[in-house]
């Protein structure tokens, strides 16, 4: 018998992650007639972004496209996925995927289906030039993803609603912000951004998670079908590499200059990001933190 899953997204519908996922759903629905259908309900206007974790946990929705930073309330470990230095494919080989699924099932009643965004570093974007990784005296807009790292470089951090970032940049309320290498143009922030600091750090993560009870209740054929479709989707992650190169080119064309450090400083910069990130994960989740680091880190 055909099963229908209700799918929501933590990102607004006009964002590229969502558009790409909706295309994947449409294709899967064509192939899955009689076995499994996915009904895409919508983005944050249906379920608030930070409530999607709870909605999946309790079965209000069956499946979600979201990122770990949005459900750290359920499990602080969720934020560790951004620290992965090994690819999703490698995670499936080295046991990281199994550990993730054990933790996700135990703590959030979620089946961790697939990671559909990776190979995507975050960057620090600035309007004032720096010559070393020191943000003393600069006001930087943050989300929880970047807070600890930017604070460790001495930044004055502030939280700003996404809709106010453009004005805040234009008026100099903030001197910079953290963001992935892509998706800048969706928000038009390139218009008010002068520099991007290279190298990037971390690894932006967007994944599909499924309510565990729902997952267990699926007929084997539906479960196999969904697994196959998800693996195929995850298998296309190499796409992000070329996509991100293209985005970097677009940024250059939009007049964003790169600030880079010498090799040694760059290495230390990335290392510091990782150290700070893991320190906070291990502090909030001593149980699984170190184990996650062994499998996700290099």
């Amino acid at each position: 018998q055909e099963v229908t899953l209700r799918v929501v997204s933590a990102f607004p519908e006009n964002q590229y992650y969502v558009k790409r996922t909706v295309e994947w759903i449409d294709k899967a629905n064509k192939e899955g007639k009689g076995v499994l259908q996915m009904n895409f309900i919508g983005g944050p206007k249906a379920i608030p972004t930070f409530e999607i974790g709870n909605a999946v946990k309790t079965g209000v929705v069956d499946m979600a496209l979201t990122t770990g930073a949005y459900y750290t309330n359920l499990m602080p470990e969720a934020d560790a996925l951004k620290l992965a230095e090994v690819s999703a494919a490698e995670q499936r080989r080295n046991g990281a995927y199994d550990l993730i699924n054990k933790i996700w099932q135990e703590k959030a009643n979620m089946y961790y289906l697939a990671r559909v965004v990776e190979f995507t570093p975050f960057h620090l974007y600035l309007n004032k030039k720096i010559d070393k990784p020191d943000l003393t005296g600069l006001k930087i807009r943050i989300t929880p993803v970047y807070r600890d790292f930017f604070q460790s470089m001495g930044a004055a951090v502030m939280t700003t609603a996404p809709g106010e970032v453009y004005t805040a940049l234009e008026r100099g309320v903030i001197d910079g912000y953290g963001w992935p290498i892509h998706a800048l143009f969706d928000l038009n922030w390139q218009e008010k951004t002068r520099f991007r600091v290279d190298p990037g750090f971390y690894n932006a993560e967007v994944s599909l998670v499924v309510n565990l009870d729902k997952w267990k209740s699926l007929p084997p054929a539906a479960r196999d079908f969904l697994t196959r479709q998800a693996l195929a989707y995850e298998g296309q992650n190499e796409f992000w590499k070329s996509y991100n190169q293209n985005e970097a080119r677009r940024q250059a064309q939009a007049g964003i200059q790169t600030i880079s450090f010498d090799a040694e400083t760059s290495r230390k910069y990335v290392q510091q990001a990782n150290e700070v990130g893991w320190a906070s994960i291990i502090k909030t989740c001593p149980q699984y933190g170190p184990h996650l680091r062994r499998l996700l880190g290099r």
């Binding site: 309330n73 359920l74 807070r147 909030t284």
Partner: peptide
């Protein structure tokens, strides 16, 4: 019961 915590600048029980 789940021990959910809100992790922002301040870390508080949800």
């Amino acid at each position: 019961a789940a021990g959910s915590i809100s992790i922002k600048t301040l870390i508080t029980p949800e």
